[in-house]
Design a protein around this nucleic acid. Structure first.
Lengths: 144, 144
DNA sequence: CTGCTTGCAAAGGCTTTGCAGAACA
DNA sequence: TGTTCTGCAAAGCCTTTGCAAGCAG
């Protein structure tokens, strides 16, 4: 569906489709996010963008990530109370969250079969379904 | 399974089973949590406990909620990056999260049918499966 | 006595905001 | 020139921690 990495033109086109003006900073941030399917925190995005040269301030990273998420370019994944992860893959899918390492792993939507969904509360519409499977390292793995 | 509200003796017994010494503050906090099936933030617990008389400090509320969650007395629900909700219902179940009102509603486990689960990542064991259905108020409801 | 609990205040970490200057159309 | 964006620093929130006093066994 989505093919990573996206090059600069693809990133600009994507932003255009979502009605986001492609400033230099935003393009840089998007390029990092869409380099591959991954899950990055704001802090990680900030580091990656400024890896070689300082290109974007922290405030802009936060504002831009919020903007991208609101506009549907990326998805916020909330599994850890101390930080939000941003996911460039917006097609429906789920996540493993390794509570020991703080790592997220994608689960394709078709790998989980949700047979039936309950009736929604009155006066509400579904905005998203997500399945989070929390996993822990096995004793063997922890010995590392 | 669980019957709410729990009285003081039941709360003490529960704490005993989970190897938590039942100090006065902890019993007060547990009594608020187990008054009914609900989802409270730390801030809300703090307010409820000290509603009439100041009984417990904020630090103790936070520490105690963390302790209860670690010991398996209650469950943490992470759906909002700005705060954690604590859920006295520990039998498996899922949640609706109303993003407009910030409200959580329980979904019985048997109302969601997860037909198949994917293979776990290497060297990990499942620590919990949770389904979160984010809902939004309908246009009609928002007019309120 | 000895160790566990509490609570105040301070510190911390992540995120948002105010506002002036820069960029863009 | 008018609007949008950027970025620094400050403010804000929620949560944790240091440490002395209190309590329990």
């Amino acid at each position: 569906m989505q093919n990573f990495p996206l090059d600069l033109d693809q990133v600009r086109m994507l932003m255009h489709q979502h009605h986001i003006s492609p400033t230099q900073q935003r393009v840089e941030i998007a390029r990092v996010l869409f380099a591959r399917p991954q899950h990055l925190s704001a802090e990680q995005v900030f580091s990656l963008v400024n890896e070689e040269v300082a290109l974007v301030s922290k405030a802009t990273v936060y504002n831009t990530l919020g903007l991208f998420a609101r506009k549907g370019l990326i998805r916020e994944v909330i599994v850890d109370p101390t930080k939000v992860f941003y996911d460039p893959t917006i097609v429906p899918h789920h996540h493993f969250y390794n509570v020991d390492t703080g790592t997220l792993v994608d689960i394709p939507a078709d790998a989980v079969d949700i047979g039936k969904l309950p009736r929604l509360p009155a006066n509400t519409v579904a905005a998203g379904v997500e399945v989070i499977i929390r996993v822990r390292e096995t004793a063997a793995a922890e010995k590392k």
